[in-house]
Design a protein around this nucleic acid. Sequence first.
DNA 1: AGCACGCCGACT
DNA 2: GTCGGCGTGCTC
Length: 803
Amino acid sequence: MLAQVVVDVPTRQTNQPYTYAIPEELRQYVVVGMRVVVPFGQGARKVQGFVVGLLTTDLNGFDGELKAISQILDLYPIVNAELLKLSDWLANWTFSFRISILQAMLPNVMRAKYTRYLQLVDEVDDEILYGIFHGQERIIFDENTLTATSLAQLAKLRRNKQVVVTYEVTSKAKVKTESGIQTSLSFEQLEDIKLGLRANAKQQNKLLSYLQTLEPGEVVSQHQLRDRLALSNAVINTAVRQGWASKQPIEIYRQPSKTIVQPDQPKVLHSQQAKALQKIKAASGTPTTFLLEGVTGSGKTEVYLQAIDYELQHGKTALMLVPEISLTPQMMHRVKKRFGTKVAVLHSGLSAGERFDEWRRIERREATVVIGARSAIFAPLENIGIIIMDEEHEASYKQDENPRYHARDVAKWRSAYYNAPLILGSATPSLESRARAQKGVYQLLMLTERINQQALPEVKLIDLRQKIMHAKEQSVADELLVAIKERMAQHEQSVLLLNRRGFSSFVMCRDCGLVVQCPNCDIGLTLHMDTKTLKCHYCGHEEAIPTQCPNCRSKAIKYYGTGTQKVEIELQKLLPTARVIRMDLDTTSKKGAHEKLLKAFGNHEADILLGTQMIAKGLDFPDVTLVGVLNADTGLGIPDFRASERTFQLLTQVAGRAGRADKPGTVFIQTYNPTHYAIKMAQAHDYEKFYRYEMQIRHLAKYAPYYFTIKIQASHADERTAALMMTKIGQWLRQRLTAEVTILGPTPRSIARIKNRFYYQIILKYQNVPIVEQVMQELQLIAQANSRNGMQLIIDREPLNFM
DNA sequence: AGCACGCCGACT
DNA sequence: GTCGGCGTGCTC
């Protein structure tokens, strides 16, 4: 018996299964989908691998000597047949390595950790034995253990074969346990002990009586025993010491949320909701993709929950994806209320251990409903009956590091595999999805009415060109201030959106015009008042605020542009009685901070919630009747063909926060472009009109959804090397590809340097040109060949970020 | 990724 | 002669 193993060496040349012998003692344990440790390469370095197949004899043409699997890391398969097949497809689709996909599918703790050791194999002199090895035969070998001088000595020792370097694979995945108590004594034996106790040993008597009630072999948790019998640990420990009972670890789950939720019942649907649900139910057992286009407040979530319930009742499981940012406690609560302990939640707020435990609950089929952000699309559910992707247009569904997958593509694949309907839901669908619904590839379900027939909020534009606000350095217009005051008088709340954190966006010398730049990136630094520093939002560089210009020594340093911190101070000045909560990356970076701030706002501990785009989604507060957008234009200036779409989506979403209950809402949008179609159509709440208009633009400009795009990006510490590489690739592509493929570039990225690396890119646009796939595979080989000298090449299918 | 091998200039 | 730096090829 032989095993096909994908090894943990993410390179193009090793992106294939290797054949290993299975030692006799492991023969009955090794199965497909299990993690193993194998020797790989010279020196038989140990690496982690995944068994992806078993063979009997044929070696796939390999005629060398086989090595054997060293050990197994799991006792059962942790990647099932479906996910294994998916990993194969997704690796090809995203131009990434199979091992990277397999790693991405599993909780972080299951990724291999390697420890490097130095081992003595021959006699060495005492200076080395004690100086480097501290008298031991084996030491951990990392950057800290050796100084530069001993490193030179070491090279010599290695050449002389006096020491060897070895690697060991360790799994970080730890099962959490608590201590449990059991007894191996019989009822009668315990009775005898009780009789022998001193009369004042009341507690021991109580404990022994309890132990008598246990079934043979039954283990009770120590803390439960303590609580139930009101005992101290000392009593239990004495019993253990006497041999009356023994300790036994019990496996437990880390509980991410201990709050007990009250179950609720399905709500009554309005007629459009009921019709949509009917169609979804009718498609049960088929791989149908639906686009559920529903205005904010139309009750999409209730449709999802009832559709999930339907599949659960038929013995199936369900997967629901939401963007990370809207995976709020409110949302989790809502799902848990309906499905109780069947729900597993996967999101970034969990610790690595908690995530692992939720994953195990799914894998053991204890949880049948999974709700989570992007990576939850790989949840090890079996027998999936329905997949839901809420806010399907959200860019966070695409991972912007390797492997660059889009959760929507994975969702479609799994939907096809399980014959399960896929529901893409949004108030503002991506043009790609909306166009597919138009063509009939997806079934379009529309929800145009809101629950309780609420009117959509009135949206007013404030034309900043007409204002003299900049002269006064005021970032909130007077009519918006008046409106906020009115809400405060009525004990209602306001939400203000400003899509820029920090205090001001750049710092400039008024005498010489110098803008203070990041030393590592080609971008201006942002002023942060709370830390009294200038920060780079790309690499995290931080420096003191200069008191004089570093160029001309002038003291006329001035802050330009507005960030959330500045508006917060401004509001305190203009509305001294207003209580403001600021929510941005700076105030929510600590674990649980996000939740705490929202809870405080929900409890009316503030009148105004001021924040970046993270406040636009998912939050639902009944007393918010006013929404203000302070800078609707920032998104429009970005060099990206989706700039209008993003602006429209953001404005529509944030507008949806106003007036959800019985109170009508009002929205103010401050803009320098009041005639821009994205802003006008967001004002009119007219997605369909926006869709038709934007489609024309995309058609003319040859962009999605009419064309596919691939971004090829090279980066290098040396600018000329990066530029040269891309010029060569550009020439090569023009030779290899027909004129049907548009090749844009190479051009420097809009921020050409980030973290001291220079970026150049090429964009490919094409419709149905099969050769593109093959050319991209060839390009990967070029990328691999050049990776040695610090060149990084990225191939990104359907990039969402052109910056 | 990490290791060996081979080529080539520099040094005891 | 041989030490050590770097480019290249290979890993069941």
